[in-house]
Design a protein around this nucleic acid. Structure first.
Lengths: 206, 206
DNA sequence: TTTTTCGCTTGTCAATCGAATAATTAAATG
DNA sequence: CATTTAATTATTCGATTGACAAGCGAAAAA
């Protein structure tokens, strides 16, 4: 039977750590850093507040771990797609990247919520986010996409934020969308419709 | 001399009320409803916390007053523009409305911040926002614009949120944009560039 | 089995929260 | 001037915040 029931101790540790982390992602992106209490997070994770200090030492550190997890999800998703694109045409290639980013925003609206929350005020958390996670991805991805779209360099920031906003907002405010329009943007058909809409917006076919 | 120096009493009352209200708009849209404390707001307004209870009776009521003020700003801005459009061509007319909405988002990024903050969780504040402020504007404006753009009715929510996100995000996260790209989106030239970019995105000329 | 380790629970701390009340001060009124 | 009114300030309340310390109890090691 080899290694059937592994280290029950370390397994349990990792499981609770993961539960706290996912609860933190939810709470931070729902109520913002100040609005989410460590006791809320603990209750969401089914444990107590002391465990948060034990596993993550501070609320700030827990927030950084939550942000790391969200960007890791994005990285995984895009890397996987970048390797398995069906087309070779650069324009259709870029359109598929955009579509996949829309699908990610639907599956993990928390990342966009976090970026809007923290992008509003110039503090240490924003500096950490930009320097550790955003800057490198922007520098790597944006020039390539702008070349495909035939963009003037000065318009690059405008295209970047227009794309991010157009792709993600509807999923970030899904409860509002449901109440306002009756459409549930999380449904698979709606996700694909939005992916096509945004791809056509940014890179119209021919 | 008639009513030269009016009621100094009521004038002072209105002035402090306005100062508290503007501080509330700033604080609520910076840190979210839970993250902004009434003491923060009072200090921002140059007064003490007791005055908030006196003028607005509760934090909830103050938040609603702040939201009312933001939507009043939007209403004023768009109404003024709707009456003074230079063109009669429906497409160019719609493009100019979009441009003006972008300019408003640059001048008052707080409205978009509030809508993202509150659109994330289905609670009473969201219901109040949608029912009192958003629903009527959406129903009045969206069908007209979608007719001009030649949109399928099913795509209306997608176009609505894509437009809102593309138009407003860059200004809502201006501090992030500055650190990431070096561009200050609040500068007049950048505002006009973004207005043109979004107008061309949603309604390409010819 | 005995001992050690460590994931976890509980309780406590000063600080801060929203709200209410009492006290103060200056303008409006007679 | 004296009196009333009301805008503002100061104080206080119970509840909640993040962080920390002490101890528990079962798994791991001896």
């Amino acid at each position: 039977m080899g290694e059937q029931a592994k280290t029950t101790r370390q397994q349990q540790r990792e499981a609770t750590r993961a539960r706290i982390l996912e609860a933190a992602v939810r709470a931070f992106t729902d109520k913002g850093f100040h609005g989410a209490s460590t006791r809320d997070i603990a209750r969401l994770a089914g444990t107590n507040q002391g465990l948060i200090t034990y596993h993550f030492s501070s609320k700030e550190a827990l927030w950084r771990a939550a942000a790391d997890a969200l960007f890791a999800d994005l990285e995984l998703r895009l890397r996987e797609k970048l390797e398995n694109v069906s087309t070779r045409d650069p324009r259709e290639y870029a359109r598929e990247i955009i579509r996949e980013y829309v699908r990610f925003s639907a599956a993990r609206p928390e990342l966009f919520r976090l970026m809007v929350d923290e992008g509003k005020v110039a503090d240490e958390r924003l500096n950490w986010l930009v320097d550790k996670h955003i800057k490198s991805r922007f520098d790597a991805l944006a020039p390539e996409l702008s070349k495909i779209a035939g963009l003037d360099g000065e318009l690059l920031p405008h295209a970047f934020y227009a794309l991010a906003g157009a792709a993600s907002l509807i999923f970030a405010v899904a409860p509002e969308c449901r109440r306002l329009t009756g459409l549930d943007p999380a449904r698979a058909a709606a996700v694909e419709a939005h992916a096509d809409f945004v791809a056509n917006l940014m890179l119209p076919s021919r």
